[in-house]
Design a protein around this nucleic acid. Sequence first.
DNA 1: ATGAAAGCGCTAACAT
DNA 2: ATGTTAGCGCTTTCAT
Lengths: 347, 347
Amino acid sequence: MARKQRPENGAVVDDAAADVSIGDVAARADVSVATVSRVLNGHANVRPATRERVLAAIAASGYRVNELARNLRTAESRLLLTMVPDFGNPFYAEIVRGIDSVARQHDYFTLLCDTGADPGRERNYFDLLRRRRADGAICLDPATAQRAFAEESGALPWISCCEFDPEIGVPYVGIDNRRAAGDAVRHLIARGRRRVALINSDTTYLYARQREQGYLDALVEAGIAPNARLQAEVGGLEYDAGARAACALMQSSEPPDAIFAVSDTLAIGVIAGLRACGKRVPDDVAIVGFDDISLAAQIDPPLTTVAQPMRELGETAARLLLTRLANAGKAVPGVLLPHRLVVRRSA
Amino acid sequence: MARKQRPENGAVVDDAAADVSIGDVAARADVSVATVSRVLNGHANVRPATRERVLAAIAASGYRVNELARNLRTAESRLLLTMVPDFGNPFYAEIVRGIDSVARQHDYFTLLCDTGADPGRERNYFDLLRRRRADGAICLDPATAQRAFAEESGALPWISCCEFDPEIGVPYVGIDNRRAAGDAVRHLIARGRRRVALINSDTTYLYARQREQGYLDALVEAGIAPNARLQAEVGGLEYDAGARAACALMQSSEPPDAIFAVSDTLAIGVIAGLRACGKRVPDDVAIVGFDDISLAAQIDPPLTTVAQPMRELGETAARLLLTRLANAGKAVPGVLLPHRLVVRRSA
DNA sequence: ATGAAAGCGCTAACAT
DNA sequence: ATGTTAGCGCTTTCAT
């Protein structure tokens, strides 16, 4: 049923847009639906006068294309699925921004799914591709989970971002985690620290294992024997996980004089935890984080950290996916982006 | 063209799901498409034996429903649009989580749009409803922008969340900002502070003006004359906006002995800025923030702040929208949720 | 309990 | 340059 929009107002549109279809516009402009479709989609073969007539009819009727119908007809949803383990984490937030910005430039929207790194939920989300709810996906979940998908969903159009295993044969974008972690720890050692601890996150993430390798590399390079009691693994990336781990580390008989945390959120928690046990940063313990989220520069002391190009990571992932979508057959390369050590006051 | 899934593997599905339609399943089960549709949608009138046959055909063919087609037919996208000014802000992130969790419970997905509080982009997003891309919307944008929409989109199904103007006649959920800000400032005054500064954000937000009112209320109640030089307005909510504003405030001839910042992100920046100019918190300047994001407890000193029930705010908004969608005609109430002052060490 | 058939609103192939 | 028409894959009357 038609209804007036703002009936008390002069600038009224005479039909409710809700009920106007392309056929109504065609009738009003006295052309066929095909012609209306042509002007809608900017095709060339329409006489200017006709185009004007159609445009006028669209404006007068308040017509809006029904994308539900268009999507069925063109067999695409124009939605990109983005699976993140925790989008409240500022690191992921910035990546998602990058993804979203290029998606939008190409008239796609982003379906953001917080999987909580739970393989069960991840699997359901992947099914969105098969049900045509999304055209492609970008996955930031643990490599272990990705490997499982790759086996059952290898043919589906998706991309790994940040967390990736080149072996599984899915296009990816990320950084060289091992080398980056090595850089962080080398910096600590160069500052004279010898008892360098590692606070790692969940090692179902490949990046966690790679950063551990980098940590070990730097130690060995410097002739320092790795000490298992200086390595902590915490479940997640929450601030207080870092705080607790730091406190625990300081209880030991030979506490560290430096800590490398595999994420800034963890490192920020570490600093809070250290303060709680009365330790000074960097005097007693030097800290290096990872990611360079915007908060890193604001805390006390400002955090030394490995900067990841988060925005570009997201943008690249989206571009990779879009090219994969455009040329279904063609192989898409894996790409590695550069990192950078940002030295502030915590180390 | 059909292709095999994991052709080297035993657990092969014989057709590529991509190409199987409901008709194929019907043929395979030797029933009509109507019957397949019935079992797909859990309708009652199907004989158990028939249902089994259909289920088997679905499993054998790897069929997945094409939601593009279903959506056109049922005339719904099952997508909820969520417009936030900045989803990287942890405050919004938690609200979005709340929205998403109830949306999902009701088989909706969330289309998250970062408007950057830009009215132009907001307007475009609203058009997604008219183009049937989304079934309803939740808007966290400035009240000024919302007022504009209300005029041209009053009939569309949408809800205000956090930021709302009861006058515009759109269902809303939020807190009593004026009273909450008053509580914050009263706390500062009770602690003996007299020169209380306000660091406010963009006053195109109604919440900003309401919190300013609450600030003024508390001052007047205590017999303190408001001082314009103690009130700063910054553009956004970024950490460093707070830092800059705090430094500026301290330059004045009569600097404040307390600062109320209208958001935690601002307050965290304020603390960083104060540290940069050599001021101690809370000794020289006491600080109260607003929101109680998870970071508030981690910084040094831990932040005293007004807690908003972010998760519930989001959940309620989604529920409101869903009921509005379910009963198109019926009016949906506005709801106010309780806030709480969380006293930590910064004030 | 099941099937036949009519569309949902659009795009695009095929006329003209 | 424009029109006619056949679907896209599904849900849902309406028959039986």
